[in-house]
């Protein structure tokens, strides 16, 4: 069985909205060559705050290309306020599901979109109220904090409850960040 769904393969083979958008008023780029994924998302927002058009350019695997492609389809015609709520889960579901070790591709698409919208608004993503901590699984800071605030300081248990640190990189990237979050929360009490 192919690890990818028919929908995902279709978006990989026949990607929608590929290329540069010359009159874009928001551009978001995430990833780097060393990690094997770069996504560049262009949006054009009209005066009514509606995303009129979106395009992408992606360097990455089949699921990265498919995630970018379907993300553009899912935001075109939507108000910015609605598009910003697009979750990586919704992208994965729209693609007919993704293998667990590929979920970070859907996270990248959401990140790229967040950056494009921030760019349009003249903000930076660092202003974002709830950043993604676990990039493989798309787990946001609030979800992890919620567990920590319930008194959980064991990293394995945090992983079990939030799915953070359980993705492709095995927690390589986010474990230190979460460790610090635990320390910051419990540190002084010990």
């Amino acid at each position: 069985m192919n690890q990818y769904s028919e929908i995902l393969l279709d978006h990989f083979r026949n990607p929608r909205n590929v290329g540069e958008l010359s009159d874009a008023n928001g551009i978001g780029e995430v990833g780097n060559e060393a990690c094997g994924d770069i996504m560049k998302l262009y949006i054009k927002v009209n005066d009514d705050g509606i995303i009129e058009d979106a395009r992408f350019e992606t360097f990455g695997c089949a699921s990265a290309i498919a995630s970018s492609s379907i993300a553009t389809e899912m935001i075109i015609g939507k108000p910015v306020e609605e598009a910003i709520r697009l979750s990586n889960k919704a992208i994965a579901e729209a693609l007919g599901g993704m293998p667990k070790h590929k979920l970070h591709c859907s996270v990248l698409a959401v990140d790229a979109l967040a950056r494009a919208i921030a760019d349009y608004r003249g903000e930076t993503v660092e202003d974002a109220p709830d950043p993604v901590i676990c990039h493989c699984m798309g787990i946001k800071k609030s979800a992890i904090l919620d567990v920590i605030e319930h008194g959980i300081e064991d990293l394995d248990e945090i992983a079990e409850r939030t799915e953070a640190m359980t993705g492709a990189c095995g927690g390589e990237r986010c474990r230190p960040v979460i460790e610090k979050m635990v320390k910051d929360f419990f540190g002084d009490e010990k």
Partner: peptide, 11 residues
């Protein structure tokens, strides 16, 4: 030998 087919980050 790409990372993206094996699920690891490293190629």
């Amino acid at each position: 030998g790409s990372a993206c087919s094996s699920g690891s980050l490293e190629p």
